[in-house]
């Protein structure tokens, strides 16, 4: 066959694949939003869920999702970036590095339910943290670290070596070169990693059922004492997130309007993820601008 014809066929095939993927995603998104949007109201977004009657909301679950995300990021970002910097810039090709890489790879392929059970055993029971946001955040950190480390390492390795050399050749220390020259250039990649891990934190249910718990205590949004059991910002209280809540009412909900609430909660979850993506890309752009004058 003629090279030009093959080229045409390949182009058509790739366009078709792209269109199919877009259509599937778009269809899914429309399905979730169409089924869910009708049930979304101010009450639904702010009120706590009902146990037996119809008409409850998902207010605390939305708050829990964002709060858990914040805690998870607080643990994951410093450790993940630190690990990535170590692997990209400091590790020597020896057995320790090899072992570390192996562990990270194994960790990244662990099923989330296994990580959840590990969390239940260690954080919830052995360390006595109970079903709490804290246990949940630690488990999500374990779950997300491999991705965060890998993406940071790759972003740093992708920084042109000329940039690094230019800095070192002026007598600037390795650490200063990493923080002031390399990290700003690697930032867009690291932001992508952050968004991916955040998306997983939003959507994760299996690992959280056993660690953050499947219920939320009645919250008093006027109580900001982080140690009070009914305070929303107490990290040691149980907290069901949106994703866990959706799973729970779908599988064991006793309320008559369970299906509608699950659909609406799903729509809220998708919108939250979308909102977070846009927000973090925007913040990332601002930081990048500040560091690079681009």
């Amino acid at each position: 066959m003629n090279v030009k014809v093959i080229d045409k066929i390949a182009t058509v095939i790739f366009y078709t694949i792209a269109i199919i993927i877009t259509l599937i995603l778009f269809g899914l998104l429309c399905f979730i939003l169409v089924k869910g949007l009708s049930g979304i109201s101010w009450d639904f977004l702010t009120k706590p869920p009902e146990n037996l009657r119809a008409g409850g909301g998902v207010g605390p679950q939305i708050f829990n999702s964002f709060f858990l995300l914040l805690l998870t990021m607080l643990f994951t970002i410093p450790l993940g970036i630190g690990g990535g910097i170590y692997l990209a810039e400091y590790s020597k090709p020896n057995t320790i590095t090899y072992a570390a890489r192996l562990v990270i790879e194994v960790l990244s392929s662990l099923p989330s339910i296994v990580v959840g059970l590990f969390g239940l055993l260690i954080f919830v029971q052995k360390l006595g943290m109970g079903f709490s946001l804290f246990s949940g955040a630690l488990v999500l950190m374990i779950f997300n670290l491999p991705l965060m480390i890998r993406i940071t390492e790759q972003s740093l390795r992708a920084v042109p070596v000329e940039q690094k050399e230019a800095s070192l050749a002026m007598g600037i220390s390795h650490w200063k070169t990493i923080t002031s020259i390399m990290l700003p250039i690697a930032l867009p990649g690291i932001i992508t990693g952050t968004i991916l891990t955040a998306g997983r934190a939003f959507g994760e249910a299996a690992a959280l059922m056993f660690t953050a718990g499947m219920s939320s205590p009645p919250l008093d949004f006027t109580n900001w004492n982080p140690l009070a059991p009914n305070s929303p910002i107490n990290p040691f209280r149980p907290a069901s997130t949106l994703a866990v809540h959706i799973w729970k009412i779908n599988s064991e909900g006793l309320i008559p309007d369970a299906a509608q609430i699950a659909a609406s909660a799903s729509a809220v979850l998708v919108i939250c993820v979308l909102f977070f993506n846009i927000l973090s890309r925007w913040i990332g752009k601002l930081i990048y601008k500040k560091f690079t004058a681009a």
């Binding site: 007598g171 600037i172 020259i181 560091f291």
Partner: peptide, 29 residues
């Protein structure tokens, strides 16, 4: 090394200004 490299500067084949402003490129070090 810092002292030596401060006294012996280098310029490469491919121009490699930092991904910063013109001003920052010069004052960074």
């Amino acid at each position: 090394l810092a002292t030596i490299r401060q006294k012996i500067g280098m310029v490469w084949q491919k121009p490699n200004p930092f991904n910063k402003s013109i001003y920052e490129n010069i004052v960074f070090a």
